[in-house]
């Protein structure tokens, strides 16, 4: 799950079927199956939100929204 990723992790999205409008927005922002990502930074203490670079675009996002994204 992408929501469990730690700072410095890299990988590829393997499965993601968006259900809510927010999840659809994630896909539009580049969270597509096959996309490569890297966790650039995470907030202190709670480690949430985090900054992900995906397709060369940096996005700040709460882990909650990444719950349904499977990664390898």
């Amino acid at each position: 799950m992408l929501s469990h990723a730690k700072k410095g992790d890299r990988g590829q999205i393997s499965k993601f079927q968006p259900k809510s409008p927010e999840e659809v927005r994630l896909v539009e922002l580049g969270f597509k199956v096959g996309a490569h990502y890297e966790i650039v930074e995470q907030a202190p203490f709670s480690k949430d939100p985090l900054v992900i670079e995906i397709n060369g675009v940096r996005i700040a996002v709460r882990r909650f929204l990444l719950n349904h994204i499977e990664v390898i």
């Binding site: 927010e22 994630l26 922002l29 939100p49 900054v51 996005i59 700040a60 996002v61 709460r62 909650f64």
Partner: peptide, 10 residues
Amino acid sequence: AQPLLIELPR
């Protein structure tokens, strides 16, 4: 609040 989601521009 709705969880944060924002693009960080270059």
